[in-house]
Design a protein around this nucleic acid. Structure first.
Lengths: 181, 181
DNA sequence: GACAAATATAGCAGACTGATATATAATTAA
DNA sequence: TTAATTATATATCAGTCTGCTATATTTGTC
């Protein structure tokens, strides 16, 4: 019954850094937050309206003529709401890996399919790593003058460490299957 | 528009091992699959009916009198459907970590809150590790006579490796914040 | 100036969660 | 023995979010 909605707070978090349009919010989701949280347009736009209705955000009218776009700005009420949410313990920490699911049931599909899933996974991780490593490099260079950077850095480091572990596991798993062919 | 539903296949996967009631399926979700997939009663029961309607499962009437419960059995049509899904590449591999989200925005809530989130996370991981380690130990002991065990073992090993990496990261992150207090 | 790509918003069917409700069977405690 | 508690078992539903589709404009490119 309580408020299980998270996206309003995620958007307020992004707006706490800078004014953004819905489209720009989506871009942030697909870059900086990509590794640990996602959201679709289909949820971002309705949520933005909701934030305005609740007085947590306002439509910022600077450069309105520049393009027919809507830029949102966080209000002090919104900042307060965000802060309260940030102080609550995290509830949802979960993985949802279809790769592991398909591997778990691979008895029905055979060993070749199992190896295929591991190799697909491996490729996805190899492709995703450079972005995370680049983020760590840039954030480390920019130093600790800005706390925002430090927090971003910590999440990016999490990503690098986890992805590197995934790659190690891929080797372990492939070895285990090959040694059993 | 295509079938994005996964739960029907997950349930068929579990039924491919043994006949189960909805309640037992939920228990498997909360133990063996817990680490990488979840499902609620609210989705399990409707999906079971759907499976019966589509001829992928039947109500098994053995020991019907034992208790007023409904046990489901996979059909050969269901097994075929499962196999086809298992052979498709995995689509959804994603993390959803509220802890990282709150850490990312910790600039608004302060360093103490950030450390609190990391420590809560650390505790959750420490509490979750023994189950995964126990699974690895038991599955390694049971040997490779059964392929089903091998696939389960690989997913459990994934869990152990990843959780141990999480704990390493917790130390790194706490150090970074303390060195900056 | 034609074409492609990026920007920008909106709506919707379907999937899933988390909560609630209800009932029975088995176990434990008094 | 019976009361209380816990485990088993199923069902329903509002609210949340995804993935898809549609539409239109702006910017860059050749």
């Amino acid at each position: 019954m309580a408020n299980e909605k998270k996206l309003d707070c995620v958007i307020l978090g992004l707006l706490s850094h800078e004014d953004l349009t819905g489209y720009e919010i989506k871009k942030r989701m697909d870059s900086a937050l990509r590794f640990f949280w996602g959201a679709s347009f289909g949820s971002i736009y309705p949520t933005l309206w909701e934030l305005v209705e609740n007085g947590f955000a306002v439509i910022s009218d600077t450069k309105e003529t520049e393009r027919n776009k809507i830029t949102y700005r966080i209000t002090s009420k919104g900042r307060q709401y965000l802060k309260e949410w940030l102080e609550l313990p995290a509830v949802k920490d979960e993985l949802r890996y279809e790769t592991l699911l398909k591997l778990f049931f691979a008895n029905e599909s055979g060993e070749e399919t199992a190896v295929m899933h591991i190799e697909n996974f491996q490729e996805k991780i190899i492709n995703g790593l450079p972005f995370l490593k680049e983020a760590v490099k840039n954030l480390e260079r920019s130093g600790n003058e800005d706390k925002t950077h430090l927090y971003y850095l910590l999440t990016a480091k999490f990503g690098v460490m986890v992805y590197e572990t995934y790659l190690k596991w891929c080797d372990v798993a492939k070895d285990a299957l090959k040694g059993n062919g």
